[in-house]
């Protein structure tokens, strides 16, 4: 596909554009995270995850001069099925984008959650195949999409019973977080590689062995504003270029 673009001296240049995708992997302490597999959390707590899902908004590539090229307005990243087995977990999932103009970029930026302008809309505004068309991910009591759902089970008695469920649902504008990852990204005939990104779900819940979400005392985060920011603030650290 060919896109016209204006250069500084007002000549019309013809710029090629390409399709490319970002690979996303869920990890736990650096290992590919498999839904249903048991991991050790702080306090030696055995846990496994049952649902891992979040929205990304305003995904853009940034040029050296600060100009932005939008890759997508909003996408939903759902590891719940993708991570069903080891092979799928190490493969991760791909978010595909089309018509990315040829060029040299210095960073990728996105928001975790649904950007405030989009968060003013509701699932009934979309078809059900649209990322924002899913009624399961909209919480009317907040007037907001559920930006992230992290669910799983823990086994405090360590006898295999896994009788403690944990459910972290977070949403509403104040919890929207922007993340910028710097890396030289070149889009050209020779090269259409976008970065691969890892999201470490241990780091999403824990900052260090002394500063972490206590799953046993806070097994549900839904209206607890401080804990909601705690998790959303952690995205910055949990997300890394591979």
């Amino acid at each position: 596909m060919i896109l016209p673009s204006c250069s500084s001296d007002d000549d019309i240049q013809i710029v090629d554009s390409f399709d490319a995708s970002i690979n996303l992997k869920a990890t736990y302490n650096g290992q590919p995270l498999v839904i249903g597999n048991t991991y050790t959390y702080e306090n030696d707590l055995p846990i496994f995850f049952t649902q891992l899902k979040f929205y990304l908004s305003n995904i853009v590539l940034i040029q050296e001069d600060g100009q932005q090229v939008e890759l997508a307005e909003v996408e939903v990243v759902n590891f719940t099925n993708v991570n069903g087995n080891e092979a799928m977990a190490s493969q991760g999932l791909d978010l595909g984008f089309s018509s990315i103009p040829e060029g040299e970029y210095v960073a990728i930026e996105f928001g975790v959650g649904v950007a405030p302008d989009l968060n003013n809309t509701e699932p009934s505004d979309y078809s059900s195949s649209h990322p924002l068309g899913e009624t399961a991910d909209y919480w009317s009591a907040w007037d907001s999409y559920i930006f992230t759902k992290i669910e799983g089970k823990a086994d405090p008695s360590q006898n295999g019973s896994f009788d403690l469920g944990f459910v972290y649902h977070i949403g509403s504008d104040q919890f929207y977080r922007s993340i910028k990852l710097s890396q030289a990204i070149s889009i050209s005939t020779e090269n259409q590689d976008l970065p691969s990104i890892e999201i470490d779900f241990y780091k999403l819940l824990a900052r260090s062995s002394t500063d972490f979400m206590d799953i046993e005392t806070n097994s549900a985060v839904h209206n607890e504003l401080d804990l909601m920011s705690y998790v959303m603030d952690n995205f910055e650290n949990a997300v890394a270029l591979q």
Binding site: T50, G152, F162, D163, G165, S219
Partner: peptide, 11 residues
Amino acid sequence: HNFINTDPLIK
């Protein structure tokens, strides 16, 4: 009844 795959919301 709790079992491994009983949903975390059921408590």
